[in-house]
Amino acid sequence: MPAAESHVAHHFPDLEVQSHAARLGMWLFLATEVLLFGGLFTAYALYRMLYPSAFHGASRLIETSMGALNTVVLITSSLTVALAFHYSRQSRNRLAALLLVATIGLGFVFLGVKAVEYAHHFREGHLPGRFYRYAGLQVPGASMFFTVYFLMTGLHGIHVIIGMGVLTWLAVGAWRGSYGGDYTTPIELGGMYWHLVDLIWIFLFPLLYLI
């Protein structure tokens, strides 16, 4: 396939080695992301152990249904991005592009729900550290729950935004037919990043909303 050969850089023997390298590189990058969040999970674990009832009480202040809705939204977006990769391999580029756009749309839904939640917390004073001013729950560690909550969901939100940027770029490329057939590595890697965002949320949801 001459079109695909042009994607092989001069120092790689063939496309297969190159995609293997790209995939391994992406997994290593995802490992760094896991450890990045690992630091926050450590903080969460320690403070939850120190302040169990404060965390339990503070967790009641965030709306489980919102979190559940967002979980469904992210899982569905993971499906659409996986299907986009699938159809891109079959060179159905327009369909792949549309699925990527759907994923981005779901990303916006996720951020919208999150914004509604944040606005609620700002109104009520469920805020981190010295900004915490919710009179209904004044125990040591209550503000710490919201510190951890905002740091975790905030960092996750930044990842969602970055992922949406990447997917936009991929959607444009897919629409123009830059990928397809044997050369789908960018969509595969972009998709993996998006799945990781989903993966982190799968853990954030029970830890923050369901305790």
């Binding site: 993971s78 996986a82 595969e188 998709g191 993996m192 799945h195 990781l196 989903d198 993966l199 799968i202």
Partner: peptide
């Protein structure tokens, strides 16, 4: 599930 099937 996500890692095995979505992320191949």
């Amino acid at each position: 599930l996500v890692v095995l099937f979505f992320m191949h």
